[in-house]
């Protein structure tokens, strides 16, 4: 499944950018130059949102990413309203390491992402892909 989560995250972000650009741009503004490091059970990668329209200059992004570690199952359950994020944090199923300002920015960006996703009509197949990844995660 290597690369599958990265491909899914890219597709979801593209979907929000296309179907609800207002939310995508607000999310981008909330994050600014911050990078997000995402670590799942079998896959880790980094996200950065270049300021539009010009590509970000070298050195523009922060060196220290907001580090998020979780599983496809936990992410699926949170997005599907079946798990409270705070409960997942308390159970060590979701960890977020960052400075206080970065945590606030990440929370705001996350909320804006969900607002955008809620306005997408083509999100359902991607949630099914996430569910499949969550089920595959338990088998491998």
């Amino acid at each position: 499944m290597s690369g599958a989560m990265r491909a899914l995250v890219d597709d979801v972000l593209d979907c929000v950018a296309l179907e609800c650009p207002e939310a995508y741009l607000a999310m981008q503004r909330a994050l600014g130059a911050r990078r997000i490091g995402l670590a799942f059970r079998h896959e880790s990668f980094s996200l950065a949102f270049a300021p539009a329209p010009a590509p970000a200059a070298e050195g523009w992004f922060s060196e220290q990413p907001i580090a998020i570690r979780t599983t496809a199952r936990t992410l699926h359950d949170i997005l599907m309203g079946e798990r409270d994020p705070l409960d997942a944090i308390l159970a060590d199923e979701l960890t977020v390491h960052a400075g206080a300002d970065d945590l606030v920015a990440a929370a705001e960006a996350g909320l804006l992402f969900v607002k955008g996703a809620a306005r997408c009509t083509s999100l359902a197949p991607m949630l099914r892909r996430l569910k499949n990844l969550a089920e595959g995660e338990g088998e491998s």
């Binding site: 949170i78 997005l79 599907m80 309203g81 079946e82 994020p85 909320l111 969900v114 607002k115 996703a117 809620a118 999100l123 949630l127």
Partner: peptide, 8 residues
Amino acid sequence: VPRTARLL
């Protein structure tokens, strides 16, 4: 419902 909107 939608279940994905619980965070909102």
